[in-house]
Design a protein around this nucleic acid. Sequence first.
DNA 1: GTCGTCACGGTTGAA
DNA 2: CTTTCAACCGTGACG
Length: 914
Amino acid sequence: MATDILNVQVKKESMEPPSEDKVEETAPDIAQIVDKENIGETNSCDNDTVTSNNNTEDKNGDKPGTPIMVISPEGGNTAEQLQRMIQQQYLVNLLQFQQSMLQQGQVNQAPSLQVQHQTLLNALDFTGKSGETSPDSTQNVAGAVKERKQNRSIEGEIGSDNDSLVFDDEVYSNVGGRNINQYGREFTNGRPLPDHLRVQILQLALQGIRPCEISRQLQVSHGCVSKILNRYRKTGSINPGQIGGSKPKVTTPDVVSRVRQYKMENPQMFAWEIRQKLLADGICQEKNIPSISSINRIIRDKAILQRRSFDGSLKDCDTTDMDDLPLDTERIQRYMISIPNLTGNNMTPSTEGTIIPVQVSLDTAQGVLVPTVNMIRQQYSPPIAHQQTSQVSPTLMRTSPKQSPSSIVIQGIGNDAIKTNENAQHVFTVEDLSRQKFVSENNGHLQPGVGTSQTVDIGELAVEGMKCSSSPKSDLNRHNLHSVISHLITTQTAAIMKEDDIAAQQLQYQNEAAQGQSSETIIEIDPEINDAVSNITKNPGTVSNPLSPIVSKDFSPIVQRKFSSEGLSIISSPQTYTVASDKIGSTVPVTINIAPYQFESSSKDNSPQISPALSSSHSMEKHPQTSPQSVGSNARNKSRHRSRDSSSSGSMSPTTNRTKSVEKKAVSRSNVVPAPPAAVTYDKYAGTPTMYDYTLPDRGLGTGPAPTPRPQSGNSVKSHSWHCPQSPAQLSIPSPALSDRSGTSPLDLSSAPIKESRREILKSPALSDKGSLSVTEENSEKSTPQKVLYEKNMLIFSENEVEIISVGNNKWVVRNESQLLSMTHKGKPDGQTETQTNKRPSDDESGSPVGLKIPKLTNGNSTPMMGHGANTVNSSVPLTNGNMIFSANVSVDSPAGRDPKSCPVLQNMLKPKT
DNA sequence: GTCGTCACGGTTGAA
DNA sequence: CTTTCAACCGTGACG
């Protein structure tokens, strides 16, 4: 074939120079083509351009008269070439014959030919391109052929091999992208394969010839053959798709306004929820429904627009950075940790292997808390009794009227505003920061849109020492935001880092722990760790930023000794050393979160200390990684996957959710960390929890069906005021268990298995880039050298969503703690819980979740309960053991065999609200 | 060896 | 008129 090409090129060069006029492309009569005996041998120089014209440039496709130059083979033909020639000649003859038969009305004499011809025509889908009539009837086919003669000339299409015989200098030389593929055939990069080759591919495939053989015969890459044949299988057409152009705009003004309206009415709505509501309300159809990203963009653009509308001078500002921050929690988190003093200086701003303590829910109605200094401080030490603190979890709490004023509140239009009711009860937004204004807040309560704010000059900013540039230019948006938060944290925290406070708090907690209820979990503070953490917080030299919950590699010797005592050693990347803590109920779990692969065991006998029940559960089967439930949630994961079909395997192995690069990284670390043992799960209901993909932007609120439907009680959780009948997962996987849940919110998992995510802890910037980790992927399995899966439990009560992530043995991270708190408070008052709550004045009236206790798993039959108020404790949480503290499974309302009275927390919950 | 997948560099046409 | 962008293309490497 190289010879042919060479000949072609030589002949091309020897041709007369083309005229200045555009040389018309030729679509010669089929007779012309078929008379050329050598038609098939010029495969190597198929002129895609002509075919392209046939596809897209009809204006030239039917103009005859252009001289045809036939390139005769001058080299010896191989058997393959001859075969190809015969094949192509056959095809051309076939089509010509078919056409003539059709035109002569003799189709009845050759019904098989008609069918075959129809197949070819259908595959070519001429009508699809030219808008002609359906080829269903012979007449239509003939008409279509006639029509095509006028527009595109079917002859030219059929005989487009002849295109390769035409060597028009101008066309040839002016068209770029000419290449020779590995088979020697010339192709035009970016342009579709000629139709005749497409037909031949189909024809040969229909004859049973394998794709690889077709590829060789037609000198088309096997990938292309595969693609075309797959397209034919799926669509019945082998035509290329429409190239170029734009899709009809789906984000019409009406849609945009609706989206904004939905978001305004329910700021907690996720994009996909908005999307489904658009469908439900008939605003959009399936064909024109905006994508989730579009919806997010609408919301974001709205925010941007409003932000800019505050001050025209901002037009000059470089708001690109902010524009690039959609209303995405994870992105905001990444943004937050990039703030100085909020993140250790030697920490990478990525979420890589770190606990991100900043949980921002974009709730414009209620505002969102950024962890205050107190919160952050309490991450390293127990709360101080005399201080008015509210929350020590690394996660955030949504603000409430009872919220402690000692909090920084992000509030307003998505991520566009920052409020602070810190001390001076000042609120400032991003815009405010840019225009050096702050909005004062009434009573420290966030009531956006209520009109309770007033604008004051930045000079009145109560935060002492706060400096704001007066320049409205440049990227002040971000800088100011950084500086404000950083400054606040710095100044506030420094004042409260006092030893006596910490000591007092420790003492109090120890007392509390001593009084803990037997039936409830008292996650004891390891004194050494606690001391170590306190030391971290107090000793600037050991922590890059004492205010940051993300601690640098420079752990204090105490901490390191602690690690060592646990049989662990710090062996690698220090950037993920984290220290975090959360507090659930009256307990103060202080968690040292270390990427598990950063440790190697100095003793293989350092198995986690587990209760007898947990120990016994080790013998239980591990959760299947490919559970039926996993399919549903995994379907959502497809959107995250670049791959289209291959990723839908339904497997929920820890690496399935990851990109290849992540997987590779995981593998690369396998030499550091031994493969984790199978996560031993105790599931009372023997159900396999729905896997939850934490990487999803919508945080995976789709509900997967339960393989083993649980008995439903009538005490179901009320649904949203709005609800979508089915989550995407449900749509794809119908389940009897879900059939009666059509009226429930997609957030309602009352009758569905709890969301759970279990994945290997992997450190990967790519993963971070996916915006996947809301809280952490760290695991604090300090007592095990194994690579640990983290486990996330999704507890969803009506519209409330709570995520509980176990990050180690008896270490929890609770996201959306505000909801948890809210639930807890709804269940008040309570004896034990309340009593214990009262022991901590700092938590009083502060909205902290101290009222919530996480019952301790004492044996396999003790099922800790979590629930919400409203007299409908509808969830029980069978525990899972293994590397995790909890697995998850939510059943509805005291399922069989469960005595609510056995759980004080449940009793508490069941009490009528006061 | 086969085949599906996907990154890549390219083209196209509506906005 | 140019630019941008998102669609599509075939190829070829990869597993």
